[in-house]
Structures are given as C-alpha cells and as structure tokens.
C-alpha cells in the first residue's frame, strides 16, 4: 500500500493531491523518474511503460495508476516538444485529425478503466495487458539487438531528415490503394490517404494510451509510417505535436475523475527531466546497440515482474507483490546504471588517451 498519509487518500477523491505524499515517497518518485528519464533520453522510448505497472504494484487504484501515468506522459511530451521547438516537419492537418481520433480513443480507454474498476477487475486486466505489452516489445527489441541491427529505430533526430529521399513502404501503398473511403486527404510528402485510415490508427493508439497510461508513440509512429505512409521526419514531429494535445485532454478527463495525483506526477516529472538530459548526453558517448539487449531484457523482466505481482495480488501474497515491484524497478535501475557506467568509463578511457605520456 502507498506510504502516504490517510489525508492524501481522501484528498485524492477531489482530484487534487498536492504533494500529499510523504517525503520518502516523493524521494522514491524522483529517483524512479530519474531512472525512467535516463532510459527515455537514451533510447527515445521506454519511459511510460514502467510507470503505470509500478504504481499498480505499489497499491494505487487503477484509475490513479493509469491517470497519473498519462499525466506524466503529457508532461514529458511537453518537454520533448519544447526541445524540438521547430518540431521538424509537422503535418498540422494530419495532427489535427489524429488529435480528434486519439482523444476519443483515450476517453474510450479511460471509461473502460473506470468500468472495470467498478467490477474490481481493472488492476488485474491492466496488469495482464502489460505482461503482454512488455513481453511483446521486449521480445522484439531483444531479437533486434541479437540480430545486431544498427540504429536505435525511430528517434527524434530523424525529424531533420529530408523528405525528398523518402519512399512509402509497400504496405502503406497497398492500404492507400485499397481503402478509398472519402474524405481523402493529401498529407506532406505527397501522401494521399483516407481520413478514416488516419482516424482508425489514432483511435486504436488512443485506446491503448487511455487504457494503459502509455504514450503510445511506440505503436503510433510505426503505424503512421507503415499504415498511413507518413515520412519518418513528419511522423516524429506530428506524433509529438498531437500527444501534447490528446495527452493533455486525456489527463484532464482522468483528473476530473480523481485519477491524477500531483504527489506522484510532479516528482516523477522532475526526476525524469534530469534523467533525460543524462540519457541524451550519453547517446553522444555510448553506442546504443551494446545496451539495447539490456533494454530488451529489462522489458522482459518487467513482463515477468508484473506477472509475479499480479499472481501475488491474486493469492494475497505480500511477498510476491513486493518481489514484482522490486524486479520492475530493479531492472530499470540496472539498465539506467549500465548507461551511466558505460558513459563514465568511456569518458575516462578518452581522457586517458588524451593525457600525453612522458617519453
């Protein structure tokens, strides 16, 4: 159970819990935020995956775990958008259609959470969904790392690439040819696609966001590229632009229902902003490929952790629940620590090479 005072629990009902958490809890959230930020700054993804499961395992009710996770995503999206203040090549028409679709999807996800909570099933269902999500993405990332594929996948540096060398993926071309339900819209990069395809993609990723409290970019960006045919630079910027709005509206709706706990979000965001600077700086020094395998392993450990925690909750074992929480936070700490350690050792090695030897 959360270590906050009983007063914080009653304040939660009104949707405001301004630092109602104990100092130890705030310190824990700052530390966890730092770890999440390092991962996000380094890999460009993986922050929000861990927040909601950790909150669930700490005993927060599902609407608070998901709502606060979403508010955290909103905050980090605002910071990321400000960093890429020209946002590369945003397609505002695409962004606008996606904001509408994503927001409705988030609201559907949110209503589902509250409905399941009224049945006492929300924690269990969301935990199972996370086991599948973390396990699936963990397997994908680990397989990529073992194959030795170069690069970090889609990241925000791609926002600066030129549209002229872009080629629409075959699957997107097929979708554009097959689905011709009006209205058809023309997007940047000369992409002509049905607005319904865009809305469907946005809605589906919105439901994921609203139900799990994740940013959804890890699905929305590949979906924009492979299902809609959006050029990568446009996908990066437009995704950021639209999640600020849909995440903000989603957080607002969760907040109205008492799902956003400022005592969680504020320290998490603070820690993560610092961590993201460390993670980003590390990308210039450390090769991501070497650590990618650890990242995949961390996601897989996270899947196992959530599973253990959920079994513990089901059979009423505090030990298993605690073990799950320790594993999810511990695996994130190990990977973030690996990034920092490798950065420091690389810097030391560089400095030693620069020191002239006395002949």
């Amino acid at each position: 159970m959360p270590a906050s005072s009983p007063a914080a629990v009653t304040v939660l009902d009104s949707g405001l819990s301004l630092f109602g958490s104990s100092p130890e809890l705030i310190a824990l959230f700052v530390g966890f935020g730092l770890v999440v930020g390092i991962l996000f700054g380094f890999f460009g993804m993986g922050g929000s995956f861990l927040v909601t499961p950790a909150l669930l395992m700490m005993g927060y009710p599902a609407p608070v775990a998901v709502g606060s996770g979403m508010a955290f995503v909103f905050g980090t999206a605002v910071i990321a958008s400000l960093k890429h203040h020209d946002l590369g090549q945003v397609d505002y028409k695409l962004g606008g259609i996606m904001i509408a679709g994503t927001t409705v999807g988030i609201e559907v996800g949110r209503v589902s959470v509250y409905y399941l909570e009224s049945l006492g099933l929300a924690g269990g269902v969301i935990s199972v969904a996370y086991v599948l999500l973390l396990g699936g993405i963990g397997l994908m990332v680990t397989r990529e790392a073992l194959k030795g594929d170069g690069g970090r996948g889609i990241d925000h540096e791609d926002a600066d690439r030129d549209l002229s060398d872009y080629e629409i993926p075959a699957i997107a071309k097929r979708i554009q040819k097959t689905v011709r339900i009006p209205p058809m819209v023309t997007l940047r990069g000369d992409v002509r696609v049905s607005a319904w395809v865009i809305t469907a993609v946005a809605f589906a990723t919105g439901v994921l966001s609203g139900f799990l409290g994740v940013g959804g970019g890890f699905i929305r960006m590949p979906a924009m590229i492979y299902a809609i045919g959006v050029p990568v630079p446009v996908a990066v910027g437009t995704d950021l632009f639209e999640i600020v709005f849909s995440g903000g509206i989603g957080s607002y709706l969760y907040g109205q229902g008492g799902g956003v706990d400022l005592g969680i979000v504020a320290p998490l965001l603070f820690g993560s902003a610092l961590g993201a600077r460390i993670g980003s700086a590390a990308t210039a020094i450390v090769d991501a490929d070497g650590i990618k395998g650890y990242f995949g392993g961390m996601l897989l450990a996270g899947a196992v952790a959530v599973g253990i925690g959920e079994v513990g909750s089901y059979v009423g074992s505090d030990l298993l629940e605690t073990a799950g929480l320790v594993l999810v936070i511990g695996s994130a700490v190990v990977v973030a620590g690996a990034i920092v350690y490798t950065t420091v050792t690389s810097l030391r090695a560089t400095r030693h090479r620069q020191i002239p030897t006395a002949d």
């Binding site: 209503v111 509250y114 109205q256 965001l269």
Partner: peptide, 30 residues
C-alpha cells in the same frame, strides 16, 4: 459502455493539469 465524457470546465482540474504544464515548461527552461 458508460457514456464518454466531453471535457467540461472545472477550475480544480484545470489548475492540476496547468501545474503539470508549468512544471514541464520550467524544467525545460531550467
């Protein structure tokens, strides 16, 4: 499924989300 909600003006929630927004801006600038 229970009705989807349309955001309505609620000062407390607006302050809550607004403070997260302000914190994000401050952290970016700082």
């Amino acid at each position: 499924m229970a009705g989807l909600e349309i955001p309505t003006w609620d000062p407390e929630t607006a302050i809550l989300i607004g403070s997260i927004l302000i914190e994000a801006v401050v952290l970016y600038v700082g």
